[in-house]
């Protein structure tokens, strides 16, 4: 019963932050600020959705059902690690590519990287 509550809370938090991330992508003015919204919130939201699944699998294992539910939890954890590492690195690559292809952060109060390039 407690497990059900934890699952609901985790899923709720995950979906809420994913929704905020998508809203940020639609609302923010330039590619860098959109990346802020995308990386942080969707990674966090997906981590919480994965946590809900892990808790579900763990609760089933506690009830005495072994085998597939243990595999479910462990594999979801591996997916979570893969996602957390690759998302941040991917965002870094996109930001670098955007700057190299000549996208100026706009609006911006200062751009040290552009000063170095010139």
């Amino acid at each position: 019963m407690i497990a059900d509550t934890i699952i609901m809370v985790c899923l709720g938090i995950g979906l809420l932050f994913n929704a905020l991330g998508v809203l940020g992508i639609l609302r923010f003015p330039d590619v860098y600020t959109r990346l802020h919204a995308e990386t942080k919130t969707t990674t966090f939201g997906t981590i919480f959705i994965s946590l809900a699944v892990i808790v579900y699998g763990a609760a089933r294992v506690m009830e005495g059902e072994t085998g597939t539910y243990l595999t479910l939890s462990v594999h979801t954890f591996v997916a979570l690690l893969a996602l957390a590492f690759t998302n941040a690195t991917g965002a870094h690559a996109i930001a670098r590519a955007a700057h190299r292809s000549g996208q100026v952060p706009k609006p911006a109060v200062v751009d040290r990287l552009q000063e170095v390039r010139e």
Binding site: V22, V31, R34, T42, T46, A79, L83, N87, I94, S101
Partner: peptide, 20 residues
């Protein structure tokens, strides 16, 4: 680059949907 950001988000959300 804006489109790539959106594509990356779609990928993350797809992974989440697959897990669920």
């Amino acid at each position: 680059p804006d489109r790539v950001v959106a594509l990356d988000t779609v990928n993350t959300l797809t992974v989440a949907s697959m897990i669920v």
